[in-house]
Simulated scan of single mutants.
Amino acid sequence: MFTSLMVFHIVISILLIVLVLLQFGKGAEAGLLSGGGDASFTGAQQGNILTKLTTVLAVLFLGNSILLAKIQSTKSSSSILDGDAPIAAPLNNDAPIEAMENKEEAADAKTETK
């Protein structure tokens, strides 16, 4: 099921890209489909149909993305970072009290030797 949903997602993605590229923006004199003598669509109908198809494909794309994410999250229960220790060193105020006392004793010893 996951593989078929991925193939469906790829097909939706390609169709969505093609539909967005076929549309023309405001002020554009001619879109990709407006030339070539195709009399089945007028300018307003063409934009209407392409806009509706783009909206439907965008909703399918988003819904399929959410479904794929949901399936993938239930498939794996652990993360690759679960066993790793944090790399960052603690900040000064987060350091253990013993380490702070040792630093203070070392600083006192340095000032006494000078």
Rank of each mutant, 00 (worst) to 15 (best):
A99W: 04
E112C: 05
A39L: 11
G83R: 01
G63H: 02
G83V: 01
N93L: 08
G37M: 02
L16Y: 00
N64Q: 03
S76T: 04
G25K: 09
Q23W: 06
F8M: 10
L50Q: 00
A95M: 12
L68N: 04
K110F: 11
F24M: 12
L81I: 08
L68T: 06
D84E: 11
I14H: 04
G25P: 07
G35Y: 06
E112K: 05
A58Q: 12
S79P: 05
S73Q: 07
G35V: 11
I49Q: 05
Q72I: 03
D94I: 07
V59H: 07
L22A: 02
F2G: 08
V56G: 10
E98W: 01
H9P: 07
S13I: 02
A85Y: 07
G47W: 00
G63P: 02
S73Y: 11
L67R: 09
A109E: 09
G37K: 00
G43K: 12
T3I: 12
A28Y: 01
Q46R: 15
K103L: 03
G31Q: 00
I14N: 02
M6F: 04
K114E: 08
V11Y: 03
N92E: 13
N64M: 02
G36E: 01
A107R: 02
E104L: 12
S34I: 03
Q72W: 10
K26W: 15
K103I: 01
L32C: 09
S34L: 03
F8P: 10
F41M: 00
L19I: 09
A58T: 06
I10S: 14
E104F: 15
F41L: 02
L57Y: 04
H9M: 08
T51A: 12
A106C: 01
I87E: 08
S77P: 14
E29G: 12
A109M: 09
I66K: 13
I10H: 13
I14V: 00
D108E: 13
L81R: 03
P86I: 02
T113H: 12
S77A: 13
F41H: 00
I87F: 05
I17Q: 09
D94W: 06
V18L: 01
T74Y: 04
T113N: 14
S78M: 01
A28R: 12
S65T: 05
S13A: 03
N92V: 12
I66R: 14
V59F: 11
S40G: 07
G36V: 01
P96L: 08
T74P: 03
G36A: 03
L57P: 00
N64C: 05
L67V: 04
L60P: 04
P96C: 07
A95Y: 05
